[in-house]
């Protein structure tokens, strides 16, 4: 074989490898950047609840599953998921074992306060004025929710709006696995 053929073969092999990688790569949109927080202890969340009921903290919710929901007043899908969250919370408030904790990304104080005024008297909601909680939880864009085990570990991350049925399925899987 001449030198040119060797080089051509080499180039061919590299390109075939490239094409194979392309062909097997799933679309980037489905490869959600997995959060590194899975199975790690959930970062602390504590403060006065905006919806009344005094001070809340995640640490004191140990012993039950907690759904932490990050949202923002300006986010349209958050408004869409809100009735579902409400229903999920009501459904489990009676049976117990599952709590819901909202965190509002308060990039501007006015509207968030107004929002809370309209939606007061339900599950506790914490303010996150500095974006510090969102940062600790690696929130990319609201709404993002985390399911936290009774022992305080993060079990899963849900990007985008949640539904009651989806959350119930997730809960069933978590319970089946013995968390």
């Amino acid at each position: 074989m001449t030198r040119i053929r060797w080089i051509a073969t080499g180039v061919g092999v590299v390109v075939v490898a490239l094409i194979v990688v392309f062909a097997v790569s799933p679309p980037a949109t489905t490869v959600a950047d997995r959060t590194p927080l899975i199975d790690k202890p959930a970062p602390a969340l504590a403060g006065p609840s905006l919806t009344g009921g005094g001070r809340v903290s995640l640490a004191r919710m140990r012993g039950s599953f907690v759904l932490v929901n990050f949202f923002a007043h300006w986010c349209v899908p958050c408004q869409q998921e809100e009735p579902q969250l409400e229903a999920f919370w009501r459904q489990h408030r009676r049976s117990g074992g599952v709590a819901v904790l909202g965190v509002v990304l308060e990039d501007q104080p006015g509207p968030a306060a107004k929002w809370v005024e309209e939606h007061g008297g339900r599950y506790p909601v914490l303010a996150d004025p500095e974006g510090d909680y969102a940062f600790r939880y690696g929130v990319r864009s609201p709404p993002t929710s985390f399911l936290i085990s009774p022992k305080g570990r993060i079990l899963s991350e849900i990007d985008g709006p949640v539904t009651v049925s989806g959350l119930d399925r997730l809960l069933a899987v978590a319970r089946a696995r013995g968390y």
Partner: peptide, 11 residues
């Protein structure tokens, strides 16, 4: 100037 970016900058 996305809110996540602002939070990270502050951090």
């Amino acid at each position: 100037n996305a809110s996540t970016a602002v939070a990270i900058r502050q951090f």
